[in-house]
Design a protein around this nucleic acid. Sequence first.
RNA 1: GCCGGGGUGGCGGAAUGGUAGACGCGGCGGUCUCAAACACCGUUGAGCUCAAACUCAUGUGGGUUCGAGUCCCACCCCCGGCACCA
Length: 918
Amino acid sequence: MNCAHFDRLLGYPIPYGGNPGWGTNKSMPERYEPATFEPKWRQKWKEVDLFRTREDASRPKFYGLDFFPYPSGAGLSVGHCKNYVPTDVICRMKYMQGYNVLHPMGFDAFGLPAENEAIKRKRHPWPMIQEYGETYHRQMDLIGISYDWSRSFFSSEPSYYRWTQWLFKKLYEKDLAFRANAEVNWCPKDKTALANEEVVGGLCERCGTPVEKRAIPQWFFRITSYAQRLLDDLDDLNWPEGIKAMQRNWIGRSEGVEFEMRISGPGLGNGDHRVDLDSDSHAPNLTFRVFTTRIDTIFGMTFCVLAPEHPVVKTLLKHAPSDSAQAMEAYRAQAAALSDISRQAEGREKTGVFTGYHAINPATGKPVPIYLADYVLMGYGTGAIMAVPGGDQRDFDFATRYGIEIIPVGAPAIDRVEEVEALKAQGKAFESKDGVLINSGEYTGKSVSEAQQQLGEWIEALGIGERKVNYKLRDWLISRQRYWGCPIPVTYDKDGHQDPVPDDLLPVMLPDVENYEPTEDGRSPLAAIPDFVNTTGPDGTLARRETDTMGGFACSSWYFLRFCDPHNEESAWDKARADYWMPVDCYVGGAEHAVMHLLYARFWTKVFYDLGLVSVKEPFARLENQGQVLAMTPYRKPREGETLDVGDEGILISFAEAKEIPEEDLLWRWARMSKSKGNVVTPEEAVDQYGADALRVYELFVAPFDAEVQWSNEGMQGATRFLSRVFKLVSDNQARWKPGWKHSIESVSDPDALKIRRCTHQLILKVTQDVEKFAFNTAISSMMIFLNSVTDLLKSTDGSGELDIALSEALETVVLVLSPFAPFSADEIWTEMLGRTGFTYQSEWPQGDPELAKEDSVTIAVQVNGKLRGTFETSAGSTQSDLEASAKELGGVQAQLDGKTIRKVIVIPDKLVNIVAN
RNA sequence: GCCGGGGUGGCGGAAUGGUAGACGCGGCGGUCUCAAACACCGUUGAGCUCAAACUCAUGUGGGUUCGAGUCCCACCCCCGGCACCA
């Protein structure tokens, strides 16, 4: 168990920490003493505005960006730092390499989290969120993140949301923003509609409340028009596979056939002419459409299913005899009463009701019964299916329950029909696409793909349908019935006709009001503010404002463009400036935004591309997801009568409580740092105890960037020890330091000096390459190796002039490559110990020379039959025959070869000799 | 169920098909100290009761190869996402 952490949080004395008072010899610090210099550098960087963006046309650019954070009232934890520090390292290195670096930060201030917090605190959201943003800013400065704060903004500032509204209008003009009356997900706790992406398993993504369905007019963005492009362009993105897969899955493209089914039965066609002429269907030809990805199974269609909400059901109800109409009504009521979560509950028995009507299977010409069943969803495809129990497990389950005929239509091969019968006996359908058709008329014996092709053509020739691509993706619901968001810039005239607000009247200001609590009735609180609602339209007549606001994801769909040109008052951004900086070269944030922000931002960027506002089709060329930071968290075993939720191992308790209860009842678990778990370590605490550079180095070193980190005080001490060793190396060798080493470095020929140079250049090459790859842990490891090697070398060598020159190069280099990781320490050593002026940030990143980095002596592994039997040292570049000869001389090797005949010798130069013998 | 990522010492983790376990944490032994802490030095996969030598070791079982943590096939387990999507 992690006792040190436990003790600290309980307020016990800690073994090592708190501004130590030792070693006050300022000019020659022999260890990392952050309190003595970190505040000074923080101050100096600020004074000279060190991180101001450079836009120098002769240089290449690098745009490094972190996800747009909502500044929460709890402030940052060391967990958040794991996001910001790596981006900072790559940005700092790029700057030192001569790039113009754009590394901005701002705040996602509009939206539900801010508003809910404000309501809870009984404060107005605007001053509150500014305060929270300032806390974030201070904490980010504390850990030395190199943001250009002159470009910062809050998305709730009128100078920003004016352009959010302008961009909304651009979408509106292209018919990509529209208002529709739709059944939407309504969160009764947040009292607003939510986008599909914000509903997880039937629950509100933010507060976990089960969502309800409500029919309210809502604003949508037509993201479905871009479904194919959003899918196709994923291929070229340098993003984690998992995120790309989630987006592909969310877009949910499927290819199939959509066709028409004709209904027959009471009151409809087929010789029965008791049609109600007043109904909306005097419908001898009443039809519905079905979508299928398995048109090859059509011969096995033995029934059809309509979603209970399917519009054709209304018509059927009018014509059906009263008993079946009653059954249908009852089923529809039951389905409507079910929440999404219970309707989708796992392992739920399929239910349904026979409508009394039939449809004609176009392949067989036979009538099949039509059922209503809630396992068919109105929101996907046509809300109706052809059901093939022989080829689909769900249809199979339903058919079994309702005694419907099951015809097998697929088999592994035409002569293996009995295997399908065996499956059927087990209650399973043959769903595989690796097989051939059976019981399918003239298509029997054909492969699935062949039959799909030909049956698709047949349906089209018949004129009852066509091949079609379907997407799971739905339009993006953007309106929120809440106060704290960007007003939608639309007015309605007395006839309800929509008019976008003219550009010169933007922004539509969010009114400053005392009371903005959400309402129950599905209307925004803005609707109750007459001064806001009553306005005039573009023609000067009285008009009413739209009172819904935009969800926060609208604001965060273009902020990366505003950062390119944040103070522009004439336009959202200047195209030339956006063209210069875009795309974001490296975008860093958590994986939880996979199908929300990251999809929306891609969509808007594509729209802007089509409008000629930007020249990139994709906003984020490379994406990296950081791992989380976990902390040891106390739980206890459940007591009698207490039950645990599924997946829970114990009951969360406070650290204070953990001190009280007997140890055998305690359970320590790693859990994500969060305020509610009481296990948060703040950057202030970490910096106070260990220092900002130690925190940075620890989080970068302890695990790969994308892996979880288990917070440990021992690990922080390791980081401190490493930094101290850098100080010590420079301090121990200060007498040998030659500031002018560059003038004579090229003429160094002493073998020991060249060994030091080798270490130095191996270090440069490795760190440069690893930062590029986001392999910060191995980059720091290579610095540790460097320290170990140079320390050893210095022990075994005598001083010489050339050695001092090489050592000076080594010292200066290690400080420079350390700079992006531990910038405070680097600047301290740079000026106080090496006597340099300026900042390491403004110094040139060292160039690694692969020739100098090359080893001159190598260890050759000698194998006999693939097993290691010895090694020997030799100079690099030895000939194959020399290597072979030396290998055979090794004692251990000879013993293994005794009595055997050598069949073959494999020699890999500078690596290994493998002798094959038997 | 489907998709994605994984499984390597006591722990976090390294390893372009070529000496598995870099680097660190922890442990053990030592130096320093009155003592401790800090720091430093040495040692640390397992087995064979020292060592050498040898054997075994990267979730399991097969395969390709002179040689496999790495490539191929099958399976097991863990994490993340989606989930009645027709």
